[in-house]
């Protein structure tokens, strides 16, 4: 989903930019702050930051996409994170992702149109014994097969 919502630079962010503007390494710090404010990095804000800092948008996106920490999409109300650590990968983590993409009609790192679900792939979350594993809003579901997924999703569907 391309976010069409309008976002404005918050006062807190504006003050932060002012403070960091001329310091080395400012871009990362400012992007961190941005994510703190909005939960992700809205495109309109990235464009605005580019203007304020006189940095091309291409450079900002180079940074945002380099660090997995930064999110480009507004997280859904329910955040599904599928583990892609070695154990889970070997036990079919990728199939879980594929099936969820089907069920939700979205790709990885995106959010459903109605804002209910977002899907991401994460590194080992330390429950390898239960592989393959996913979490929804932090709640862990283990030893999953693709057949279990509709039920998991249904649990969170309003």
């Amino acid at each position: 989903m391309q976010t069409t919502e309008e976002y404005k630079i918050t006062d807190a962010l504006a003050a932060f930019v002012e403070e960091w503007k001329d310091k080395p390494g400012n871009l990362i710090m400012i992007l961190h702050k941005t994510q703190e404010e909005y939960g992700f990095i809205p495109r309109t804000i990235a464009i605005e930051l580019g203007r304020m800092l006189d940095v091309p948008l291409a450079k900002i996106y180079g940074v945002i996409t380099f660090y997995h920490f930064f999110k480009l999409e507004k997280p859904g109300k329910n955040q599904i994170a599928v583990c892609m650590g070695t154990a889970c990968y070997l036990k079919g983590g990728e199939d879980l992702i594929k099936e969820l993409e089907n069920l939700l009609s979205i790709g990885v790192n995106s959010t459903t149109e109605d804002g209910q679900f977002s899907l991401e792939a994460v590194r080992c979350i330390g429950c390898c014994g239960l592989a393959p594993v996913l979490t929804v809003n932090g709640e862990v579901y283990g030893k999953l097969s693709t057949d279990d997924l509709p039920a998991v999703v249904a649990k969170y569907t309003e």
Binding site: A46, A58, Y61, G62, F66
Partner: peptide
């Protein structure tokens, strides 16, 4: 610009 990293690195315009 180069987006992403590791084996996913790709050359592309910013912002999808």
């Amino acid at each position: 610009e180069f987006l992403e990293r590791g084996h996913k690195t790709r050359i592309a315009p910013a912002g999808g």
